[in-house]
Design a protein around this nucleic acid. Structure first.
Lengths: 349, 349
DNA sequence: TTTTAGCACTCTTTAAGCCCGAGTGCTAAC
DNA sequence: GTTAGCACTCGGGCTTAAAGAGTGCTAAAA
């Protein structure tokens, strides 16, 4: 569907202005934006056609026009001028991310926070999925006669611990054997490959200590599950409240919806690789109507892993936000890869 | 300052009703609440006097009356009827807390969440201060030729880890010695007693490994600091938005204020032991005007430790909330004590 | 055929005016 | 000291009027 040069500039100008002000845009405003190269009457005619084509709509007869979701889509895909990040911004981001480059979870956390702050919207991220990570090291550390801590490190640098209590006193010898056997069986293997049957089979391998170690094996299995689960992180929800596009009630409903992590996770999992803009109106969720999700996957080891993006009203500054998110996504990917490199062979870069 | 029986019941009824509806209360309403034992005219006279005494105020001439902060103070201290917790509620709380009784941080986290949910306000808590905790166990676990994880367990069951990177490859022997020496020096001692000088002096004690271990010692010191710091936790901020007493702008400002953890920590630190109700108007913070803080310290080992409480508008159901918070505080104290007991000698209860 | 100027028309927003009701304070009687 | 009665006050809600912004259409110009 071709629009013609002039209609395109009119549509682009309309979207630009609407993004800036949030109010219906009239023909006179556009006339000024195009430096009076065409008269408002011509623009009115074109706008009428754009309305008929489904790109613009009027809240009421005597108001200006508002871009539809279709207009935003076209704007994002073809019409807008991406504003590339300034040197300074890039350096700030690099500095921030480098400073937390030893803990994958903190990395994501800080990136999320920074994204929320710099865009003024809510940021959504997921931690690297443990699925593709390998078990790097398991330790069992006694902390009292009847309790021990299980300790797990993955190839991507994730460190997790879990307390495990025993029914009766357990000797340090049993725990040593347990650690040894667990490492022998699972080290170097994928986290995702550790299932209940594998763990259960350990009881036999532990010989005389098998029965006493059952609580530890249960805890180990739970720990693996917890570690493999990728977590959804939401930051800056409160920013949404400050936005004039959301009245408090809608913002509240939206935040409620986002806070239920599973639903958000579902939403993300349906998103293809690379950078995507998803409009709420395209999902079936009524709470998401009028909101938009700009999200990109970050890669680790050349494969798509987690997500990072922002959630806000349809009317966001896409031209600035999209390059920003892309930069975050590639930076995170790079840093995670470096971390994995360091962790696996100790060589820097 | 004596009020007399009747004025007291009138004031109590006014506060009760205002808490329930949030609207100015008129003399006829009070008449009904007192079962027509006195006429509305008499009540009007008394209310006029209560206004003169500073307990009630009128938004405008032709409206009912609203209790002042002084009235709330009197209500909380003398007038209200505490509503004790039902058996069922107690059991629910006990069940919830027991289920997370192996991790002090999760315990506080869950308690906070539950308190926020059941009151419908924001809950504020602080984790047990590591200050009074002892070092229970230190481990150093190599995870790559150039990196290791420091692992710290305290007497109150807190488990913390920190990654430490070395400039050059470090042998497992050096790490073993490091762990041994750290344990010898610090195990059983108070976390609060570990200062920079103590850690620095370790370089000498490590002999030939001293220099290589400097990054680990730095990380250890940081880890101790992080562990000793008691953290402020805020849950259910969004509940405040839903409350009709807060317009969105004020709620936003309040939440912003609360989210800056330090200021909240300052506020808490000025609170005496036991249960307290602090009115925002009593602090100098303009953001807190019209809000109230019900908070109690919980004890561990017989001494006041952290805080748990709720933040909401002046108009809260104190009669229900106060017993609830007290119950949470004593339960948390008990469970933390038990945890410390289990962790130190392995005996249950 | 396309663009532009002009104008009547539509529809929201804002302000002003008005009435209604809730609640008070006062007075006089009990 | 308590109560009934009544005039008075003041905010909330409703209606009406005016102002303003923007459109769509028509007819003329390019």
């Amino acid at each position: 569907m071709q629009l013609g040069k002039r209609k395109e500039s009119i549509l682009a100008a309309t979207v630009d202005m609407y993004i800036r002000t949030g109010e219906p845009v009239g023909s006179k405003t556009i006339e000024k934006m195009l430096n009076n190269t065409v008269s408002s009457a011509t623009i009115r005619n074109d706008m009428a056609e754009l309305s008929a084509m489904g790109y613009l709509e009027q809240p009421h007869t005597s108001a200006g026009r508002i871009p539809t979701a279709a207009a935003f889509r076209l704007y994002i895909d073809h019409l807008m001028n991406r504003r590339n990040l300034s040197e300074k911004v890039c350096r700030n981001i690099d500095g921030l991310l480098k400073s937390v480059a030893d803990d994958p979870e903190r990395l994501i956390d800080e990136a999320s926070q920074a994204l929320a702050e710099s865009t003024g919207f809510a940021a959504v991220t997921t931690t690297p999925s443990g699925q593709s990570a390998e078990v790097k090291k398991i330790e069992v550390i006694p902390i009292s006669p009847r309790a021990a801590v299980l300790f797990l490190v993955t190839s991507c640098g994730l460190i997790r611990t879990k307390v495990c209590r025993f029914d009766q006193e357990i000797g340090s010898q049993a725990l040593e054997i347990l650690a040894k056997v667990l490492n022998e069986y699972f080290c170097g293997g994928l986290l995702a490959d550790i299932g209940l049957p594998q763990v259960q089979s350990m009881v036999a391998s532990l010989g005389e200590y098998g029965l006493a170690c059952v609580p530890a094996l249960t805890a180990f299995y739970q720990l693996v599950q917890e570690t493999a689960e990728s977590e959804v992180l939401l930051k800056g929800q409160l920013n949404l409240l400050k936005h004039p596009d959301y009245d408090p009630v809608r913002a509240g409903k939206l935040i409620d919806f986002l806070t239920r992590g599973e639903t958000l996770a579902d939403l993300l999992s349906a998103i293809p690789k690379g950078l995507n803009v998803v409009f709420g109106s395209e999902c079936k969720r009524p709470e998401l109507d009028g909101t938009s999700l700009i999200v990109s996957q970050y890669n680790t080891g050349g494969r798509p892993d987690g997500y990072i993006g922002i959630i806000g009203p349809l009317r966001m500054d896409y031209a600035a936000a999209i390059p920003l998110i892309e930069y975050f996504a590639t930076s995170i990917g790079k840093i995670l890869d470096e971390m994995m490199g360091i962790n696996s062979d100790g060589s820097e870069k």
